[in-house]
Design a protein around this nucleic acid. Structure first.
Lengths: 172, 172
DNA sequence: ATCCGCATGTAAGTGGTTACATGATTCG
DNA sequence: CGAATCATGTAACCACTTACATGCGGAT
């Protein structure tokens, strides 16, 4: 449902293939919504069924034909309706914090390595988002809002690093 | 899988019924792992199947009999193995940020109300976590680590409020 | 030659949500 | 008298992941 609406939102920017969409989910929108390609192809098919998107087969210069999906008028209506609807509540599911919660059952080395891996993963992701930010120049309202979601990710990653500093010091 | 391990971790603290577990998922561990009761009962049954937990029926003083689940020796081994295993990576899925990303398709009032609702939800959750924190006195390693997960939640909620301040000002 | 990027999808399985269904006790 | 809490679960559905399967063209 939400995935379908995000795909509609992306198709409203430009017509795309499932493959194109996958690249967006791995870069631009990936820091707040992850999606698998199997899921993208399935959802795309459903959007066509519902009349929210149409397909145009473009002969591929080399490789398979591109199945270009474009949003329909009905799709734009559905997208607008979703944006104006009651927001879904966000359910947290963080396996790292689950491990920390039961961390007393782990020896000192195990605990240290748990925190170290997390720190590495967070730094990695932070570097990627900061690079994306550096490559962006915000102009209109839409671009500023998209940039704001990036800043949200960056702010939370920095908070996570600060928290790790405090916890690692306390545990040591 | 992760849910099963979290349940084992909770059963390692004390034997519990599905109902008891549900209460924990709505309070202590809820800020990093949400779980539905249908899912809890199903997972509990699977843990018994796998030999990681055993059931004892306790006659209920009023109301239905309690199905008390307790962790077995094999269950403790499985829990320890999970804690020492390669950490899963956390996949983000935040519907609020998805709405912000496409927020340009929304009018000013819609956007304002989107941020206002988010702020209210975050403040609400922050108040609950801060109260939980005030009620806790950390002593041993286990308690300190459990408290650290709470502090993680609190830190991120405060970051979210700060981000909201900045974005709302920019949009206004 | 071999690997990477482009591009498509299916099948099977796991994980998570919503709705249905029941019934006693306790508190206001 | 009615609502909330305790306590159990099932059935159906929806969302997501992993593994399988294919094949061209261009770069190293």
């Amino acid at each position: 449902m939400i995935l379908g609406r995000i795909i509609l939102g992306l198709l409203a920017i430009a017509p795309m293939t499932g493959y194109d969409l996958k690249r967006h989910f791995d870069s631009t929108v990936g820091h707040f919504w992850a999606a698998d390609k199997a899921q993208i192809y399935r959802t795309l098919a459903r959007l066509v069924d519902e009349g929210y998107a149409e397909v145009e087969t473009v002969a591929g210069s080399g490789a398979p034909d591109r199945q270009e999906h474009r949003i329909t008028a009905a799709g734009r209506v559905a997208l607008a309706a979703w944006l104006a609807s009651e927001p879904e509540r966000h359910v947290e599911r963080d396996p790292f914090l689950a491990r920390v919660f039961f961390g007393a059952d782990l020896d000192d080395d195990g605990l240290r390595s748990l925190f170290a891996r997390r720190r590495a993963a967070v730094q990695d992701q932070l570097a990627r988002l900061e690079q994306m930010r550096a490559e962006t120049t915000a102009l209109d309202r839409g671009a500023r809002l998209r940039l704001a979601t990036l800043d949200n990710g960056i702010a939370h990653l920095r908070t996570e690093l600060g928290w790790l500093d405090a916890v690692e010091e306390e545990v040591a």
